[in-house]
Write a protein that binds this DNA or RNA. Structure first.
Lengths: 167, 167
DNA sequence: AACTTATGAATGAAAG
DNA sequence: CTTTCATTCATAAGTT
């Protein structure tokens, strides 16, 4: 597949975006959802009302409701809340960094210590042998305890070999 | 605004591409695993072949194999499958939920990715293309260009009703 | 038109 | 497995 932008995508024109009665009558770009002022208004109101992470069902309802004001998909609503919440938190985080000063070390300390807590496991050599009877939840879980390596310049790779015979 | 991070003094990103149409100049980014185009390609192929929840040893093997194309850890493989599977399911759910709303629009090609037969045990020697193909197509970033628009301007919307009672 | 900002979309990592 | 959080990428919209 090479091209894919020529199926049914053709936008006419997008109405004004946020900014209150914009009206610009301009932006004619598709490729990503461009919420209308009304949609943003409703979404914002929902957020203000305390809704932060709508359930799938709620997302569906919101989407349906908003589709009345313009094209929209469930995922747009999903992403909107996800982003809105994340950015609000992000901003907060920014502000809370006024502790500056000469650093109370507390933060750094915690961060430094957490790495070597209980990673002494060194599950480097995973059990490659087939477990006897119950080979139940032996997988997954253990892998998570791997410590992080250091950044290694690994941009030198060999030619792509797509054979998956190693399995 | 914003700057580079300075947590533990690791490598700061270098932006750039991950083997898109350019060349091998991959961004040396740390902090979190950034799969190379080759790695994604292999992982995707494995997934397409039916692999959904690799066992510990499979993860280990895959990781080892992929490390040939760049830095990678077992947990990255583990998470990749975990996320890929979950999102495939999530996406399907969302799309199917709001497609009844779109009605007169074309069906989504996302559905094209129907479930692959689980009986795929032919992960023996899957070769998609010659090892030295110059086909450096991005399989990672280009992926984002999937068509998803059909911007149907609903410029004729009703008066704004800000009641959120539909929840 | 180039640059900057705002924000939609994606995804790695992790929590529940 | 499902859901959430954190970061990052991409791009429409706004600014200079």
């Amino acid at each position: 597949m090479d091209e894919g932008m020529s199926m049914s995508g053709f936008c006419v024109k997008a109405a004004s975006v946020r900014g209150a009665g914009g009206n610009g009558s301009t932006g004619t770009k598709c490729g990503r959802w461009t919420p209308t002022a009304e949609q943003v208004k409703v979404l914002t109101e929902l957020f203000r009302s305390g809704l932060r992470t709508p359930s799938t069902d709620q997302i569906q309802r919101i989407s349906t409701q908003l589709s009345f004001y313009g094209k929209i998909e469930s995922k747009n609503v999903f992403y909107w809340f996800q982003n809105h919440k994340a950015r609000e938190r992000q901003k907060r985080r920014r502000v809370s960094s006024d502790d500056d000063k000469i650093s109370s070390s507390a933060k750094h300390f915690a961060e430094m210590n957490r790495v070597v807590s209980e990673h002494e496991r060194v599950i480097e050599t995973l059990q490659l042998f087939p477990l006897n009877s119950f080979d139940r939840e032996s997988s997954d879980q253990k892998l998570r305890l791997r410590a992080n390596d250091q950044c290694k310049e690994t941009e030198q790779h060999p030619p792509l070999d797509l054979r998956l015979s190693f399995l």
